[in-house]
Design a protein around this nucleic acid. Structure first.
Lengths: 204, 204
DNA sequence: TTTTTCATACCAATCGGTCGGTATATTTTA
DNA sequence: TAAAATATACCGACCGATTGGTATGAAAAA
């Protein structure tokens, strides 16, 4: 049980660093999180860190990618079963978000939202990566809406991407507001309202 | 023309510091903005700074209060003229936000949103001040909605405060997303959708 | 033995904050 | 009303701690 392949060691070390980074960034933001602190939390030293990441910016990009994988893993559940009713997948999408809020003691936050807010105007690479991940989310939501539209013509046509950006903005803003207010319930209520709004676009 | 009262000098110096702080925080966030940098931008030294603010946290609190004054100064315009039609003030409220976006070259950001995101989980005092300012915004919006409800019964009753939090979340999230995407237009479109949504709550 | 992984020691720069001292404004006293 | 005493405003050097990042070498795997 002793010998580990280099591949494995690298994977484990990277994971330790990315986990520590996620936890610390969610709690105190990207700028306030130092490399030393990450190393301490990960049980490593700077030598290891800078062997795997050439800079803190590179770490930020990796942390965003990692968070994106995590998120899309959750959201993918929404489309696992085939569509029975037109809004099935859309509803599951809302349920997943609501579940993420309720199954989470402590504040509900998002690495992308945090790094967007902190770094968008000072670090073009991080900004672009954030934009990319927001776009992935929006694309996914827009596809669900398009799918629903195809299964059931809405009472008046609407732009799925525009609505998806609306929902994304609401989602990010809800987490932000709820963090300051220390009241996750506001996210749930906002999601309920948004869901009812979408339903109403289709209702006969 | 030389002699200045101490009162006046204090006021001017504080203003210089607060202006510099606002500009720098909006651009690079609170954590990334150093006291030295603020002093440089304000044309002062640390001696002056710590004479007027006992800590960086105290500065943050003052910057939030200052931003709150600025914002409410803008929003107050919405209710300057008496209500002619039930949704007059609500519409003006939306117009003010839209105007703030369009009359602003460069990214649209908010000191409260930035500090909320960065400091909510690490600095209770800043968190609470942020929550207070978000609440002021929501109170204002909720009052406009209540007023409209009184002037014209909605097609189905709704909770004004809940809707106001929904709008606040959307507003904050829109700024966040638009900053990452470098596209202020998304804010305008979100506001249009929100306005139509509110209108629809009242429509016959 | 060569390459990869990681620890140790170190760097210049910057962080928030303090401190002694000076210049200016205001109040008190003569 | 002028001088003296005090309070306020501000400067700039300095503090220990921490920042992101590097150079070197040892342990471990290939």
């Amino acid at each position: 049980m002793k010998k580990k392949s280099q591949e494995q060691r690298t994977a484990e070390t990277r994971r330790k660093i990315l986990d520590a980074t996620r936890d610390l960034v969610l709690r105190q933001g990207f700028t306030a999180t130092g490399v030393d602190q990450i190393c301490r939390e990960a049980g490593l030293t700077k030598g290891a860190f800078f062997h795997h990441f050439k800079s803190k910016e590179a770490l930020g990009l990796a942390a965003l990618a990692d968070w994106g994988d995590f998120g899309m893993g959750l959201y993918a559940e929404a489309t696992r079963e085939p569509l029975k009713e037109p809004l099935d997948h859309v509803h599951r999408f809302f349920d997943i978000m609501t579940g993420f809020v309720q199954g989470n003691e402590g504040p509900v936050t998002c690495v992308v939202g945090i790094i967007s807010q902190e770094m968008s105007l000072t670090n073009p690479n991080l900004r672009e990566e954030c934009a990319k991940h927001l776009e992935v989310w929006t694309d996914f939501a827009a596809r669900l809406l398009d799918e629903a539209k195809q299964a059931c013509p809405p009472r008046a046509d609407f732009d799925s991407r525009e609505l998806a950006w609306f929902l994304n903005s609401l989602w990010q803003g809800s987490m932000l507001v709820s963090k300051a207010r220390q009241e996750p319930d506001i996210i749930v209520k906002n999601l309920q309202r948004a869901r009812a709004y979408v339903d109403n676009l289709f209702a006969v």
